[in-house]
């Protein structure tokens, strides 16, 4: 059965690694729903958060292929109830419709913020699950959305080992003494 899985992988910050990871999906004809890459609390280590809809069996195989890459520290996979996840969405709305329609109630309901106001438009920021992003989009659609963008998922796992603990188990970079 296919479900939404989030693969979280930690890697060295090296050129080309993003490509090496994405071709693992391409080769298996798996579509990536969302992908974010960012630096972590550890200097030189990057974090990949990849959301795909797949069977567990396939996800395990893919995660192992990612972890097999010589510059990946480790990769793990999670179902939605094993992580806390969020995405940020930005909505650019014409100023007239923002004034005319009752925007205050919408913002309050979603706990969304106005992050910028200009003479022609306002920009609203919302953080939440995919559903929240899409629900707010539907509500704002009649306002006339000028631009819309979402960040892709970032996630924090609930009950797994932390990066610092993993790092302690891994070998250190060392040269042969001659």
């Amino acid at each position: 059965m296919k479900e939404t899985y989030t693969i979280i992988a930690f890697s060295e910050n090296h050129i080309g690694l993003l490509n090496r990871i994405t071709i693992i999906f391409t080769r298996r004809h798996i579509n990536i729903e969302s992908l974010t890459v960012s630096s972590t609390e550890m200097k030189g280590i990057h974090r990949f958060t990849i959301v795909v809809v797949e069977s567990e069996e396939q996800i395990i195989k893919v995660a192992k292929q990612i972890e097999k890459l010589t510059e990946v520290l480790f990769a793990d996979w999670y179902l939605n109830d094993q992580i806390v996840y969020r995405e940020i969405a930005l909505y650019k709305i014409p100023i007239e419709s923002a004034i005319q329609k009752n925007l205050e109630q919408v913002l309050r309901e979603f706990n969304a913020h106005v992050v910028d106001v200009q003479k022609d438009f306002v920009i609203i920021e919302n953080t939440g699950h995919i559903d929240d992003t899409e629900k707010l989009y539907e509500i704002l659609e009649p306002y006339g959305i000028m631009q819309f963008v979402r960040s892709g998922m970032i996630s924090v796992s609930k009950n797994r080992k932390e990066l610092s603990a993993y790092l302690k188990e891994l070998p250190i970079n060392e040269y042969v003494k001659e």
Binding site: T70, I172, N173
Partner: peptide, 11 residues
């Protein structure tokens, strides 16, 4: 030149 003994991302 220094030959590699170990690399943290690779076991």
């Amino acid at each position: 030149y220094k030959r590699i003994k170990s690399i943290r991302s690779y076991n």
